[in-house]
């Protein structure tokens, strides 16, 4: 008699969330099994990759290897986003509004929002707008972004407990998706989804950001929280956690020491560019296996590699 492996009993499925509009809109979620366990459940939508774009020239904040593919567009976020789509086949853009950071450039909200609008108008793929995790500033910027990009079904991030009312309301008013961000904790993730529900945000307009730790810098905490969220949603019937998960990976990995060290600084770690790309790719693969639906990645070679990986795992 042929061996019959035990099947996991699933009680629910991750709900589907659609970003963007028109032919390039992207739907994620819908999964009714643990990530890639398609022998016992279905994964109607493959996980997707969003390419990271900054609203300012990142300069020395980015290691040379990360700047190099975008050297011609780093000063023009719209051209940068276009290059991601047209040259590197990006299916989504994650625009980080770094220029808004009150501890750095502190560019006024109107100017930040105007650049976001330019980027959104320059591409036909969905855009995730990722703020600076400063409540006051993010509320100001996201209110303008939500209004000026009305109906584009952007995803606005990070929406935390401290600013969920304001940014949540902006999303509801102008038809955007909320990226509910909580600090590596299952209960806090659930609580924020409940709060957003109380506010009136529809369940299928929420993505979960569990807070992403890079490889070597807390990856294991994020990994296990994601597995626990996935288990709660799929096997323990916790409807309030049954939302797709997004991981903001590029920015976390590329700021680590090892991703930035030159061959002279760390000869024992091999080729600096390949090392950083592999750190980003290994982080992405780990989180895809833990339940990520959208990974935000920086380097085009990482994107290519992870895209090929997802295709193989979806076979």
């Amino acid at each position: 008699m042929a061996f019959e492996p035990t099947k996991q009993k699933y009680t629910g499925a991750i709900r589907q969330v659609t970003l963007g509009t028109g032919p390039k809109a992207v739907t994620v979620g819908g999964r009714s099994c643990f990530p890639f366990y398609t022998f016992e459940g279905s994964m109607p939508n493959a996980p997707r990759i969003a390419m990271e774009v900054w609203d300012k020239n990142p300069g020395d904040d980015w290691p040379a290897a990360a700047r190099e593919p975008f050297a011609d567009v780093l000063d023009d976020p719209a051209a940068w986003a276009k290059k991601c789509v047209e040259v590197y086949g990006a299916e989504m853009i994650a625009l980080q509004t770094r220029s808004a950071d009150p501890n750095a450039d502190n560019r006024p909200a109107e100017e930040v929002a105007a650049v976001v609008k330019k980027v959104v108008d320059a591409v036909d793929v969905p855009v995730i707008v990722w703020g600076v995790a400063n409540h006051e500033k993010d509320i100001e910027v996201m209110r303008l972004v939500a209004e000026q990009c009305s109906g584009k079904r952007l995803a606005l991030a990070p929406v935390e407990e401290g600013d969920h009312k304001q940014i949540g309301a902006s999303c509801m008013a102008y038809g955007h998706v909320v990226v509910a961000s909580s600090p590596i904790d299952v209960n806090l993730a659930k609580q924020l989804n409940v709060l957003l529900g109380n506010l009136g945000v529809r369940d299928d307009n929420i993505l979960i950001d569990p807070t992403t730790g890079a490889l070597g810098y807390g990856l294991e905490y994020t990994y296990s929280v994601m597995e626990r969220i996935t288990q709660a949603a799929l096997a323990q019937g916790d409807d309030k956690l049954a939302n797709p998960i997004i991981n903001n990976i590029g920015i976390e990995v590329w700021k680590t020491k090892e991703a930035g060290q030159s061959a002279e600084e760390a000869p024992e770690l091999g080729d600096p560019k390949m090392r950083a790309i592999m750190m980003e790719a290994v982080t992405a693969v780990s989180f895809l296996l833990a339940g990520s639906d959208i990974v935000v990645l920086r380097h085009p070679e990482t994107v290519k590699l992870v895209k090929g990986y997802i295709e193989k795992m979806m076979a």
Binding site: L215, G216, Y223, S224, G270, D271, P272, R275, M278
Partner: peptide, 20 residues
């Protein structure tokens, strides 16, 4: 065993096998 491939894997292994 090129270090730029192995080092990220060693970090991943350390993370995954850390006792939570």
């Amino acid at each position: 065993l090129q270090p730029h491939f192995v080092y990220p894997l060693l970090l991943q292994r350390l993370n995954i096998f850390t006792d939570p």
